[in-house]
Amino acid sequence: MAVPPVVIYPPDDDGGRRVSIDDTIVGRAYSVLDVARYLQEAGLQEADEMDVVRSLLIEWRGGGPDEWQH
């Protein structure tokens, strides 16, 4: 099974989640809007919050898109 190119890691103590795209950590997100911005910076200019929630390219670890607290 192929690993999705975007991984959202479990929330840390500050409520942020590390975001990796193609095995490179691109930053920390505090909401799905932040994840959408990282996707836009990676070249998916049309990405929005609903794309983040529904995308099969994103692997959510330690909780889904509604989980931002440790």
Rank of each mutant, 00 (worst) to 15 (best):
D13I: 01
E49P: 00
A42P: 01
L44N: 10
Q40L: 00
D13P: 00
E41I: 06
P4M: 05
I58H: 08
A29V: 00
R28K: 14
R54E: 15
G27D: 09
V52D: 08
Q40H: 10
Y38N: 11
M1P: 08
D51S: 08
D48M: 06
Q69H: 01
A42K: 10
P4V: 09
W60Q: 08
A29Y: 08
P5L: 11
S55K: 02
R17M: 08
W68Y: 05
Y9G: 11
V19F: 01
G64R: 11
L33C: 05
R17A: 00
Y9M: 14
H70K: 08
A2T: 13
E49F: 03
A47C: 03
L33T: 10
R54P: 01
V52W: 00
Q69T: 14
I58G: 03
P65L: 06
G62P: 02
D14R: 12
S55W: 12
E46F: 04
G63W: 02
R18V: 08
L39P: 07
R17Q: 12
W60T: 07
V26N: 01
Y30M: 07
R17I: 12
D22G: 12
V7S: 11
E46L: 07
R54D: 14
I58K: 01
V32Q: 06
T24P: 10
V53C: 05
A47D: 11
Q69A: 03
L33D: 15
V7D: 06
D12G: 06
G43T: 07
R54L: 07
P11Y: 07
E59I: 02
V53D: 07
I21G: 04
S31C: 07
L56R: 12
V26T: 11
A42F: 02
G16K: 10
E59F: 00
G16L: 13
A2H: 02
G27H: 00
L44M: 15
D51M: 14
D48I: 10
G43S: 07
V26H: 03
V53Q: 09
V6S: 07
P11G: 01
Y9T: 00
S55Q: 05
S20N: 13
L44H: 04
E46C: 04
E41L: 15
Q40V: 11
